[in-house]
Structure formats: structure tokens, C-alpha cells
Amino acid sequence: MRIELFTAPGCPNADAARTLLNDRLAKLGITAPIVDHIGRYPSPTVLVEGIDVMRQEADVPIGDACRLDLPTAQRVLDALRAIAETDRKPLKRRAR
């Protein structure tokens, strides 16, 4: 599972987003690492398997600005659960 946190330098919401993400991972018993990116990003942005938990887009826009749609506990939890459930499903074998 790939989990990424994008923040701009000095973002006042970065620590809260990191704490939220760690709390949700712990709640689900997931031990995946969080990949931190610091730079010119809308901050904070949380991606789970490349999908923004708030916008459901695959690309992270460029530009250092505070986000108004901060990651919520429920959105992070939903995204993590969706990927965890997908990872647990057995692969279907092709009929020969």
C-alpha cells in the first residue's frame, strides 16, 4: 500500500494531517510507511495508492497553498479501508 503526504514548507496543518493519518492507520492495524513529500504542493494532501482522499483525482497539483478541503478522518479511513479490502481479496485465476 502506498500512502503519501504532500506538504508545503511551514504548513500549519501538516502535523495535524500526519497525526490523523497515523491514527487512522493504527485504527485499521495497517503498518504501511508514509512517504513524505515537502515542496510546492497544496498542503496538506494525502494520497492513498495515488488517489487524493479529498478530491479523488490521481494527480497532485503543483503550487504551495493551504488547502481549504483538509483531509478528514472519515475520508482517510474510507480510502485506507478500500485499499486494504482490495489487497485482501484473492486473485481470480483465469479459466484455461
Rank of each mutant, 00 (worst) to 15 (best):
R81N: 10
F6L: 06
D52F: 00
R40I: 11
S43P: 13
V60W: 02
A65P: 08
A95L: 10
I83T: 11
R55A: 07
G63K: 14
I51M: 01
P44M: 00
R55P: 04
A82Y: 04
V48F: 01
I83H: 08
I83P: 03
D23N: 13
R88K: 15
V53F: 02
L5R: 03
V53H: 00
R88L: 14
G63Q: 14
K89S: 10
T72A: 09
D36T: 12
L28Y: 06
L77E: 05
P90C: 10
D15E: 03
T31G: 07
I30K: 01
T86Q: 14
I30D: 01
L47P: 03
V76K: 02
I38E: 03
R75C: 09
A79M: 01
D23W: 04
A65N: 10
T45D: 04
P42S: 02
L28M: 07
E49C: 11
L21W: 03
V46A: 05
A32N: 03
G10I: 09
P61K: 06
N22P: 08
H37Y: 15
T86E: 15
A82E: 01
E85V: 14
Q74V: 09
D69G: 13
A16Y: 01
I34V: 14
R93W: 13
R67D: 05
G39S: 09
N22H: 13
R18I: 02
E57R: 08
R88V: 09
G10N: 05
E57G: 08
R18C: 04
K27G: 07
I51Y: 02
T7I: 05
L77C: 06
I62L: 14
P90V: 15
M54Q: 10
T45A: 07
D64E: 13
A82C: 08
A58N: 00
D87N: 14
T7K: 00
A95I: 09
V53T: 01
P71Q: 00
I30N: 02
E57H: 11
T19G: 11
R93K: 14
T45E: 02
D15F: 07
A79S: 10
L80P: 04
N22C: 11
L21M: 04
C11I: 06
D52S: 04
A84M: 09
K89E: 14
A17L: 05
L47Q: 05
T86W: 14
I83S: 11
G29H: 04
S43N: 05
C11R: 00
R94L: 15
V35I: 14
D36P: 13
A14N: 08
E85P: 11
R2N: 11
L21V: 07
I83C: 08
L25Q: 00
R96C: 09
L5P: 01
F6V: 05
Q74I: 11
V48N: 01
R2I: 12
R75S: 08
D59K: 13
R24P: 00
A8C: 12
R40W: 15
G29F: 03
G10A: 05
C11V: 11
D78C: 07
E4G: 03
K89H: 11
L47I: 06
R2V: 12
